[in-house]
């Protein structure tokens, strides 16, 4: 009954039970921290070009580049169980046949790690040192959730399956976030308010249209 094997089994069983309960408590503690994110996004410069949107695309198509300004305060998303916050800006636009925003593409994203996860980021040694120094001694750094981007260039230019994008109307930019916990449930920008978790204040741009294809500069002829 009391062989060493049974003792070992009991110890292991107890360990897993305790680890599981502690993990569940940590995951549940997310609900206790109110979330009150807000953001303001403005469309700056929009252009539609014709060409290859990526180095690996093999056909010429229309692609749009949308510059924007973003000021956001996501500091309330950073708690002890936050591993990273993934912030992304998407452009949505309707199909020609309906008014629903049935197309969506991410034009910019950013990974904001909590200092506790800095060592996991994919950075060069000097950038890593800088990142770590920026929050020295702080396991949680809510100030990283404050963003101030002026006339930001998009990370991804957008193209559509048909190859046509110019003169699209009713395009809108939206700010979203995804909180990645150390353990527990992943959360996205909420559609409904839940306990202390508020909807994002702002975070939607004014509706705008994509312009006509920008003509390539003609080489000036010299006589």
């Amino acid at each position: 009954m009391h062989s060493s094997l049974v003792r070992l089994q009991n110890v292991f069983g107890f360990f897993t039970t305790v680890a599981f309960v502690v993990a569940a408590l940590i995951a549940a503690s997310d609900l206790a921290a109110p979330r009150t994110p807000k953001s303001n996004i403005q469309v700056k410069d929009v252009s539609v070009l014709k060409g290859r949107p990526h180095y690996y695309s093999n056909k010429i198509e229309e692609y749009a580049q949308i510059r924007f300004s973003l000021s956001a305060d996501l500091s309330s998303l950073f708690t002890w169980n936050t591993k990273q916050v993934f912030v992304y800006v998407s452009a949505s636009w309707p199909n020609s046949t309906s008014v629903a925003l049935s197309n969506e593409a991410v034009i910019w994203d950013m990974i904001i790690t909590n200092p506790s996860a800095d060592h996991l980021t994919n950075l060069g040694p000097s950038a890593m040192k800088k990142l770590k120094r920026s929050a020295k001694g702080k396991p949680i750094d809510p100030s990283r959730g404050k963003l101030e981007l002026k006339n930001q260039k998009p990370k991804y230019s957008i193209s559509a399956p048909g190859g046509k994008l110019a003169l699209t109307n009713d395009v809108v930019l939206k700010v979203h976030y995804n909180v990645q916990p150390w353990v527990g449930v992943l959360t996205w920008t909420p559609q409904v308010e839940f306990l202390g978790w508020k909807k994002m204040r702002g975070g939607v741009s004014k509706v705008f249209s994509l312009p006509a294809v920008k003509a390539k500069k003609q080489p000036v002829k010299k006589d």
Binding site: F86, N95, A100, S102, N103, E104, A105, V106, D109, Y156, I158, A160, P161
Partner: peptide, 13 residues
């Protein structure tokens, strides 16, 4: 991660 979606329903790209 899903970064682009064109169309709705089963046929969305």
């Amino acid at each position: 991660r899903l970064v682009r979606k064109f169309g709705v329903g089963e046929a969305a790209k």
